[in-house]
Design a protein around this nucleic acid. Structure first.
Lengths: 146, 146
DNA sequence: CAAATATAATTGATATATCAATTATATTTG
DNA sequence: CAAATATAATTGATATATCAATTATATTTG
């Protein structure tokens, strides 16, 4: 039927599967535990929390998202009252973003689930395997910078 | 500033970065070479070509996509004249999907670029590393099946 | 300094992801 | 067989990705 390549055999196919599996699993765990937030929203909140004062573009780069996506996600999170926007003191093109108290608490409450998700996903994988895995990931990232 | 975890250190963050880098790179190469198709559309065409007679749901599973996504992508590809739909001879809920000649040619013409993309992305990564990498991917996939 | 250029964020258009509900048809079961 | 159940595909609603164009403001340059 197909003596041409099998999609199943392609490394990048497994790579897609793996990240999708993990995302699905992680999102399900959030829902199960009553958190009404997406993984991506969590990631954005986390990044803003960890990099206060940065521009949206810098935040976007940090989480490897498109500027346009970040703009729209910020909008959503402001509506949801998780983010507060201040105008920037010296540059009127910018905004300063801050997490609302509820969001800080949310991150805190979610932390154990997030950590457990990662632990579960990496079950039966040795430290050494993880290090080598990460090396290959970084090689791929660099090879694709062309 | 952050004595809590660094997103940069999280394996799954690198995993996201790697797959996004590869997708971006691969898509750019297609555009550069004048192909007006997305990676996902290519993947769907490929899967239909390799699994003739399967239901859309089976195709969706094979490429790890949602049924709803596949329905919409099929629509698009039928509009673009890459796919032809026939009603199923015995089950009127189903459709049979076939690639148009243009699509078969398209796949054929794209093949060298696709292969080159993979080769470039895996440059300087040994066979052994790839095998071990794939093992870890499959472990993750299984761990997330919970 | 004014004009040109750069930068930050937004907006529009289109593609894809995901979950839930719906429609049409097929299969199973009492 | 009719009612209940299962299955294939679609549709609706919402979130995110991506590229190009636009808006507002800041910076640079002649």
């Amino acid at each position: 039927m197909n003596n041409d390549e099998n999609l199943e055999d392609i490394l990048f196919y497994s790579l897609e599967r793996a990240i999708k599996s993990y995302r699905q699993f992680a999102q399900q765990q959030l829902v199960k535990n009553g958190f009404n937030i997406t993984i991506d929203q969590w990631l954005l909140l986390k990044a803003i929390h960890n990099h206060p004062g940065k521009t949206q573009q810098q935040i976007a780069q940090a989480i490897f998202k498109d500027f346009a996506s970040v703009t729209r996600m910020v909008e959503l999170l402001v509506e949801k009252k998780y983010l507060i926007r201040f105008s920037h003191p010296t540059d009127r093109r910018r905004f300063q973003l801050k997490l609302a108290k509820t969001a800080v608490e949310l991150l805190h409450d979610m932390q154990p689930i997030i950590e457990n998700n990662r632990k579960t996903a990496l079950k039966n994988i040795s430290e050494q395997q993880i290090i080598q895995f990460d090396e290959v990931l970084n090689l791929i990232i660099n090879n694709c910078k062309a």
